[in-house]
């Protein structure tokens, strides 16, 4: 299980990275490598050129700008899970990051890498959709921004072009109550099913992961206060998502119920 031959390019700036991507149609970005390198070791991914962005400082920033939190693509899961700004502004994201893989994986894996990999059972793509984040993408033609729910297109598929680079995510910061829950066989595993449930004053929504081909945010008018009624609504919403496993619907309802209860604790 050894990767195929590739050329290695270390990019010091986003411009260098974009140049390398633009001139090599077979190039791929190497961020944390926690999804890409296993695929390369299995030879399921075989880029001609690997563009290492790990030295690019600007991609590691976490900043609050007005009512938006900007998180660089190279921010690692371990940072997400304990960054004071993230803990304060979007605690649910920090909470979700703590559930990704294991310690050593979180020390390398990045939010940008997780988004681009677009595993339907991963915590972060769904978090970005649930939080209505924008994805800022760099390209030789200049930056473009798209909502997260337009970024994810299906199983391991995104709207990112080969010569583009995810720069950062911008998360709007309205007053928000959101809870997270997931079902895993073992800690650190990809979720069988997971959910983010929002129960803010202005918004009520659920975003599942591990259920369909990609995270989907479903908005409702309001969550019923009664548990039976709420679960019936969740069941209806879950069934709108195409899942390959019938048993997942029951799990999905229960996990969303737990996420709802967690949201109530958000005050």
């Amino acid at each position: 299980m050894k990767p195929a031959v590739f050329q290695y390019r270390k990019a010091e700036t986003t411009r260098e990275a974009l140049e390398a991507l633009g001139t090599n149609p077979g190039a791929k970005v190497l961020a944390g490598g926690q999804s890409l390198v296993p695929l390369m070791n299995f030879r399921l991914s075989r880029p001609d050129v690997l563009v290492d962005i790990n030295g690019i400082e600007e991609l590691t920033l976490v900043e609050k700008l007005d009512q938006t939190l900007a998180i660089g693509a190279l921010v690692r899961h371990s940072t997400l899970s304990q960054h004071p700004l993230i803990e304060r502004e979007v605690p649910v994201l920090a909470e979700a990051a703590r559930h990704i893989g294991h310690w050593a994986i979180r020390n390398r894996g990045t939010i940008g890498g997780s988004a681009v990999h677009a595993d339907p059972a991963a915590e972060l793509p769904a978090a970005l959709v649930a939080l209505r984040a924008s994805v800022v993408v760099g390209a030789p033609r200049g930056e473009r921004t798209m909502p997260a729910d337009e970024f994810f297109l299906g199983y391991y598929t995104t709207a990112l072009a080969q010569d583009e680079l995810v720069m950062r995510f911008e998360i709007p910061l309205p007053a928000r109550r959101m809870g997270f829950s997931e079902v895993v066989r073992r800690p650190g595993d990809f979720a069988l099913v997971g959910a983010y449930v929002e129960d803010s004053d202005a918004e009520a929504a659920v975003t599942w992961f591990g259920l369909g081909a990609m995270p989907e945010r479903q908005v409702v008018e309001a969550w019923p206060k009664g548990q039976d009624e709420r679960q019936a609504l969740l069941e209806r919403l879950a069934r709108e998502v195409q899942s390959d496993d019938e048993y997942k619907y029951a799990m999905a309802v229960n996990v969303a119920e737990r996420a709802y209860l967690a949201a109530q604790k958000e005050g």
Binding site: Y8, K10, L30, G33, Q34, V37, P38, N41, L50, D52, N54, S78, W103, A104, I105, N107, R108
Partner: peptide, 19 residues
Amino acid sequence: CTVLLDGEPVRSCLMFAVQ
């Protein structure tokens, strides 16, 4: 294959030596 990279545990099978 866990090693410490600047004191933090990482997987040495998921990093290339050049990195």
